[in-house]
């Protein structure tokens, strides 16, 4: 008798449905993009994503107060990189005691964002910035150097993919 009753009246399914209903009601009555920008998920890209301070983004070269490149070509980052994406060429500059990077190439397409390079750097001359929108249309845009529109000092240009960018 008990078994038949349990088969006829679907308590188990009602239990599940009540949970779904409760969540639906909660979201339905509070969902408002202007008031609650992060309900459960953020409405990216309309809402800017929250990023933690330790986030590992794109490799960036730093300059000191005089506008000089801080890198002294110790090659530690080149050696430690697990995917060999960094190529440095040593050079000399007038009025500078330390070696100066003539070339600092970074192949972003192969970078795995592990931050080993930043860790190995004894001169604090590189960091990983907080940029994560790194997609681009052309393969050349992923090869960064010291010069050019896409360089190692500024954040990469964000590709125009979404409606919100226009």
């Amino acid at each position: 008798m008990h078994k038949i009753l349990r088969t006829l009246i679907p308590f188990d399914i009602a239990k599940g449905l009540s949970i779904t209903g409760r969540h639906f009601a909660k979201v339905f009555f509070t969902a408002n993009r202007r008031k609650v920008p992060f309900h459960i998920v953020s409405e990216y890209p309309e809402v800017v994503a929250r990023i933690q301070p330790r986030f590992r983004g794109r490799l960036t070269l730093l300059k000191d107060e005089q506008g000089e490149i801080k890198c002294v070509c110790c090659m530690a980052c080149e050696k430690i990189c697990p995917t060999q994406v960094i190529t440095i060429e040593k050079g000399k500059k007038e009025g500078r005691k330390m070696p100066f990077p003539v070339r600092y190439d970074f192949e972003m397409e192969r970078c795995i964002f592990c931050e080993f390079c930043v860790e190995s750097c004894g001169f604090d001359s590189i960091i990983l910035n907080h940029q994560f929108e790194l997609a681009a249309y052309n393969r050349e845009d992923f090869s960064l150097g010291l010069e050019g529109a896409e360089n190692m000092f500024e954040p990469s240009q964000v590709g125009k993919f979404s409606v919100a960018d226009d």
């Binding site: 998920v41 933690q52 330790r54 964002f113």
Partner: peptide
């Protein structure tokens, strides 16, 4: 998602943590 956020806060990456 909350756990991945904690991963990001601790080591900077969500999935490939290192």
């Amino acid at each position: 998602e909350d756990i991945l956020d904690m991963n990001e806060a601790f080591c900077g990456s969500r999935l490939t943590t290192t």
